[in-house]
């Protein structure tokens, strides 16, 4: 039973251990046979081999696992992999162009040194791209508020805000 499980197909009461799940990640289709409890984050990291999204809390408290689902930022640690079937999942690995060109937000993070250890950085960048797309980068305070779901323990916030301000200014012309 690949793909969507409908109620009529569901087995009564007894919990099943594993599930076929088809995920579309960065435009590629991945057929997985995984434990039903698997989070989208663990599916990406442990089963698909995309380790850019990071585990920092596993409870939606740090934002290091931020990915896009249909272009919207979510925390993949609180998303069941099964839940993500039928949607487009976007991760940091999918940002670069075919020629290896960086996304403007990636370049801005370099230019403004908006990172230190690099562990929260994939989540920050995925969140930052969405922040601009949502129209939540109209002022420094708005950027700060809408980027507060991504903790950076190294304390790169000043650079992160500058990078987003930079990209937003160029995007909005």
């Amino acid at each position: 039973m690949t793909g969507t499980v409908t109620l009529s197909q569901a087995q009564p009461r007894r919990a099943t251990a594993s599930l076929s799940v088809t995920l579309m990640v960065n435009g590629a289709i991945h057929d997985l046979f995984i434990d039903v409890r698997t989070s989208l984050l663990d599916a990406l990291r442990e089963h698909i081999g995309l380790t850019g999204a990071k585990k920092g809390c596993d409870h939606g408290q740090c934002g290091a696992c931020t990915v896009h689902i249909d272009g919207r930022r979510v925390v993949s640690c609180l998303t069941l992999a099964a839940q993500a079937q039928g949607y487009d999942v976007g991760t940091i690995e999918g940002l670069q162009g075919v020629d290896g060109a960086l996304h403007p937000m990636q370049q801005a993070f370099i230019d403004h040194d908006a990172l230190q250890c690099g562990y929260c950085t994939p989540g920050q960048i995925m969140s930052a791209i969405a922040c601009v797309q949502e129209g939540h980068a109209k002022s420094l305070d708005e950027i700060r508020e809408y980027m507060s779901g991504n903790l950076c323990r190294c304390g790169a916030y000043v650079g992160i805000v500058a990078a987003i301000e930079d990209v937003a200014a160029r995007t909005q012309g």
Partner: peptide
């Protein structure tokens, strides 16, 4: 704990499935 995962396609089905031990996601 392991669980069974099902998708509901309408409200009626969801409510019908909402037996003891089940939770809406």
């Amino acid at each position: 704990q392991p669980f069974t995962y099902v998708r509901a396609s309408n409200v009626g089905d969801a409510v019908k499935a909402l037996s003891r031990g089940a939770k809406l996601l």
